[in-house]
Structures are given as structure tokens and as C-alpha cells.
Design a protein around this nucleic acid. Sequence first.
DNA 1: TAAAATAGGATAAACAAGGTCTTCAAATTA
DNA 2: TAATTTGAAGACCTTGTTTATCCTATTTTA
Lengths: 152, 152
Amino acid sequence: MFRLSKAAEYAIRGILYLSLKPEGDICGIYEIAKAQDIPTSYLAKLFQSLARKGFVKSYRGVEGGFILTKRPKDISLLDIIEAMEGRICLNNCLIYAGYCQRDEVCPVHDVWKEAQHRLLDYLKGCTLEVIAKTAKIKTERAKNKLSPKNRH
Amino acid sequence: MFRLSKAAEYAIRGILYLSLKPEGDICGIYEIAKAQDIPTSYLAKLFQSLARKGFVKSYRGVEGGFILTKRPKDISLLDIIEAMEGRICLNNCLIYAGYCQRDEVCPVHDVWKEAQHRLLDYLKGCTLEVIAKTAKIKTERAKNKLSPKNRH
DNA sequence: TAAAATAGGATAAACAAGGTCTTCAAATTA
DNA sequence: TAATTTGAAGACCTTGTTTATCCTATTTTA
């Protein structure tokens, strides 16, 4: 199935939330989880791995939490996805050059190669900075809708 | 994980093989499986489902087998993939309009929408006819390599 | 009758999504 | 300075789903 795992989805949302905070703000896992409606203990685990991979820095103890270690313009969706799921690979024949024995005969191989290239290219261009701009517009639009009835 | 299932992969190769046969040729599952190096009984099951979905027609009994029921230019990779895996959905928020409650606030939603659109568009354009052309070139190139020293 | 599709169940392995519990580090307080 | 508290780190566990097969009958028809 061609679907993003929840792990990657949560990681993206979590990091995006961090990136929208004032720079240098240490932010606890509970706050992020609450704000993004993600199971806290699960998100904690994901952030541990994000810390090991250098996306965030962790602070233990009272007032501990996480901060972003890169600038939003230097983090793309592709970066986060690959950190959580490993390299994107639309088909087995693309695992690595030479993996697929049918490579030189199989005409479908090239199709996947091209499809993957296009997808990666697009996701690479989607940095947190770019997304944050959309976010601003969206939340403002949502605010304007703050008439009586309004669920989170 | 973002990967095509073997079921879809096998189905694509199987149908592609059929499409390269002279039109109207009934072709047994064993031949296809052998030629494409796919477990026979597994491919049999896949072709049953492809028959139910109208891609191929089955003939039972001695000399039975399958034929293609559509023209190669009317079958796209997307058709086959969706037949085997259901609709492509890069992220949960795209399951159907309204499924994702975060839809109007989530800035990542639009990215996935666009990415999915691009992928679908590309796969839709990859018909068996188009692929068959590449196939011809590839097999000829492979044949020419039958001289002593010639790697890639 | 023998070859071949049909129908389906059984399976093991991998993966996804989450939870629990203990340990470690930092800050606060007594 | 020692104890307490807060919160991340890390290891392990559970449960359900999906994948990829295999296998065994049961038709069908040349």
C-alpha cells in the first residue's frame, strides 16, 4: 500500500509545530502531543529518534523538552519521511542499482524510476519554511471563521 | 512504507506479458509465471481477480488460459495498481474529502494532495502501449549484447 | 481422462501503532 | 548539599493488520 506511516505523519506535524514556535523555545513533548492530537508516549518515542538523527535537540529534567536544530528552510518533508521510514522506494527494483536482475529487460523499471524521481523532487522542495507560509494563511482563514460554532 | 505490493508488481508484469502476445492468443498461467519468474499458484490467484475485474478473460479446461480483454493503449499502470491495491492514497488525509478533521488547518494536507495528483497523473499516462515500446527497445538492446564483451 | 482454471483456507513473517516500565539528567527546594 | 520532582531515554511488550505464499479441493472442457 502506498501510504505514509503514522510515525512519519506525526513526526512531520510535531516538527512543524516546533518550527512555528519562537526560535530557541524549549517545548515539552506533552505540549506538542496535545496541540497536535497525537498519543504522547508514541510521539515521545518518535522524538527520541528525531533527536538521534539531528533534527531536534533534547533537554532533560525540569523545563526540559525539545528545540529544533535546523532552520525551517533546511528541513524538507523528504528529510523527515526518510528519517522515519528509510529511503523512499516505490518499487523493489529501485532498492539499489543492481538489486533487480530484470533491470535491463524490464520496461516497467524505467517508469518507476521516473515516478520516484518526480515524487522525491517534489517532496524535496517542500521545506518547513514553505509549508509554514501556507500554515499562516490557513490559520488566519480559520480564525476569521471564529463565529459562535467552532471546534478546535 | 511507500512501496508497491508484489501482487501489483506481478499483475503488471503478467498483463504486460499477455499484451505482448499476438492478439487472441490464449495463454496459460504456467507459461506467464515461468516467463516472468513468478510463483505459479500465486499468479493464478491474482489472475482470477484480474478476470473478475475485467482485465482478462479466462478459459477453463484443456488448452485454457487467459486473454487480454482491453487494448494495451486502454490499460494504464494506474488501472492495474488500483485493481490490486485499491485507490492510491499517499496519506490518510486524502482517503476522501471530509475524512480528515484537520483538513482546513493542516498545511501539509495540500502538499500531499498535490503530490498524489502528480503521481496519479503520471501513472495514468503510462499505458501498456507506451511501455511496450520501451520493452521492444530494451529486448533488442539485450539481444545486441549477445556479443562476447558488453556490459551495460 | 487429463489439463487447466476456480475457490478457498492456512500459514508464517513482517510491519504498524501503540503502551509500560525503569533509568537517567537537570532544576528546584529544603 | 541532599532530596525531590519533572521530564526525556531506552528497552521491551502487545495487538492487530497486511503480505506473500502454499495447498487442496472442485469445476470445466478439449
